[in-house]
């Protein structure tokens, strides 16, 4: 087993530049969780098939289990920890609020990935149809909800953000 050793890299995450050390083959998911303590991003399948680890890269939703950390330099990464709303007493983004109020989470393990995916959608399309919401979320798997309350949460948050 030959290791090429850790290299320093700078990652811009949720608006803050983090300097850390990671091996060349380190995955963004591992660096977020193990090096930076950002545990909100979840490890579900580790193979790009569940969406639990979805984060935003330059505003676009991507899967952090299939991104090399070193490829992420120079990009803006956003995780669930970066979502907030100063106007909300809980500090929650309208999507997060809607998720809670509409029952978008049960076990909650898929929630961060779903919320980030929904955020990218609403940034691009403020008023998506139900069909469009389902399509945009179709890389995310939830085993608890049957998706109904997730879709309702996105619709409700979209309406709130628009108003």
């Amino acid at each position: 087993m030959k290791s090429t050793g850790k290299r320093i890299l700078k990652l811009s995450i949720n608006g803050t530049v983090h300097e850390c050390a990671a091996e060349p083959q380190a995955l963004l998911l591992d660096v977020l969780r193990n090096e930076l303590g950002l545990f909100g991003t979840k490890r579900g399948c580790d193979m790009g098939t569940c969406g639990c680890c979805n984060v935003l890269v330059d505003g676009q939703v991507q899967m952090s289990c299939l991104l090399l950390a070193h490829d992420m330099t120079g990009k803006e990464i956003e995780t669930i920890e970066g979502l907030f709303d100063v106007g909300d007493p809980r500090g929650l983004h309208p999507l997060q609020r809607a998720w809670a109020e509409h029952g978008g989470s049960q076990c909650g393990f898929c929630t961060p990935g779903f919320v980030m995916t929904a955020k990218a959608l609403l940034t691009e399309e403020p008023d998506p149809s139900e069909e469009r919401i389902r399509e945009a979320l179709s890389g995310n798997v939830c085993r608890c909800t049957g998706y109904k309350k997730i879709v309702e949460a996105v619709q409700s948050a979209a309406a709130e953000i628009r108003s």
Binding site: G48, G51, V61, T117, E135, L137, G139
Partner: peptide, 9 residues
């Protein structure tokens, strides 16, 4: 192809 996030990548 695949799913939306993987199409982004």
């Amino acid at each position: 192809v695949s799913s939306p996030p993987l199409r982004n990548m």
